[in-house]
Design a protein around this nucleic acid. Structure first.
Lengths: 248, 248
DNA sequence: AATTTATTTGCGTATTTATGCAGTATTAAC
DNA sequence: GTTAATACTGCATAAATACGCAAATAAATT
């Protein structure tokens, strides 16, 4: 990747998020943090961003870096790292919503060229940030709190698609009850997503393991791969492996 | 292979990939990298690409335009104020993308209960924040730079809808050429939006008045209402009124 | 067709640029 | 005050570039 491209990428990140972390950029662009620092320095000298300890900020908004919110939760970063290995060039990948998915998208290498399908607005926004790959948004009525498209139209269109991978940013997962969620409309869509994919991958921080919500999305046997921030040999994951789920 | 042919090949590559590497071209065209460099230099001097260390980039690879969001904020606020008066409870309202539209959504009264339809991801995200009203996202393939859904599917679904109002955050508007835009795919969708609405309202800061882009979206007669931050009696707006456009 | 003229191309060499690494200094966070 | 993360310095290396020049090619002229 050319230096100029990196600079454009960095500025694009700044435009959208108002800030960047050197460590993030180093991973995303697969160059050393030294290089990123030199990039940020150049862009700073041009006067189009403000370099600070740990990254850079937009000139227009004066946020502080530690306003980190859920974004850089280390657990989610680890999960994202593991998940990204599964996505290869040319794949058709279905993505749900949620901050873990966002983290996954952020960690995707810019040169990856896959087709992504989603029903989640924040997921779509983050995907637009990625320089390569095609994005399909299956739209219809939007659900306010879940920030995603729901309804028969979406389910119908999902049924017409056959994807390679389906990543679910899972709310609750449990050996006995499988993946569970709160809202009926969300569940309908998630089920349709699982049906249309060859492999279903659940991304779940360990806190969410062995928790149950009101309504069932799918049984644990329907999950092909479970990714958590834990080591795959962790005791907590043993029951899932016994049910035939691959654990990464 | 002749120089001219090489140049044509290089520009073709640039059009497709937005970038070329000297090393790649050297292999593909079986000439030395020196020659490629000289080619790129010439094309750069012609102003049709940007040469960088390692290759060249498309001219349309623009970095930062974050200033216009910040700078013309007050104008856009005034426009939003005028536009919101037109939206009543129960209406079916079509919204395009753009910062002016975002400003309009922000200024909507919370108790307003209308149905909004859009193809723009940032617009949808902003609508999700509004406590009332239904949101429909007409999705399909997403266009990266315009951050909106495009393609036949979207046009088709727009044709099945009859809306009350269509708000266009206009790029360029001109008495003789009407509303114009840059990209074919965007234009197709905007046309479909206009066709499906009873009234078309163009939101445009005065800087964008009397500017023209490459491709025509619609004639000025197709615009029912034009809203700018200027006073409706402003001299600049006179020609539009004479064409039968209502000016607010 | 032959010859002249102008342009284009490839190669060797010197130079510049880009990047990563190791060690040390600095900063921020607890 | 301690500690971990981040920044800076100098250096090494590889890749990209500029330059001069000679050979090759194309274009123009006779």
């Amino acid at each position: 990747m050319l230096k100029r491209e990196r600079h454009a990428y960095i500025m694009h990140e700044i435009d959208i998020h108002n800030k960047v972390l050197s460590s993030d950029l180093s991973l995303q662009l697969t160059v050393s943090e030294d290089t990123i620092r030199r990039d940020l320095q150049e862009l700073d000298e041009k006067g189009i961003l403000t370099k600070v300890h740990g990254g850079a900020l937009s000139k227009s908004f004066h946020f502080t870096l530690q306003n980190n919110t859920v974004y850089s939760q280390p657990e989610k970063k680890i999960i994202a790292q593991k998940a990204r290995e599964l996505i290869k060039d040319g794949m058709l990948v279905l993505l749900s919503g949620g901050t873990t998915i966002i983290e996954l998208i952020k960690s995707l290498p810019p040169e990856l060229n896959a087709t992504f399908i989603t029903v989640s607005i924040p997921t779509a926004l983050e995907l637009l940030d990625h320089p390569n790959g095609e994005i399909i948004f299956l739209g219809n009525k939007l659900l306010k709190n879940a920030q995603m498209a729901v309804g028969a139209e979406v389910v119908q269109r999902l049924s017409e698609i056959k994807c390679d991978l389906c990543f679910l940013g899972t709310n609750s997962i449990d050996v006995d009850n499988g993946i569970t969620d709160l809202e009926l409309e969300v569940i309908e869509v998630k089920r349709a997503m699982i049906r249309s994919a060859k492999k279903t991958i659940s991304l779940s921080i360990s806190k969410k393991l062995n928790t149950v919500q009101r309504m069932v999305v799918c049984k644990i046997e329907d999950v092909d791969i479970l990714i958590t921030e834990l080591d795959p040999t962790d005791e907590l994951l043993k029951p899932y492996k016994e049910k035939g789920v691959e654990v990464l």
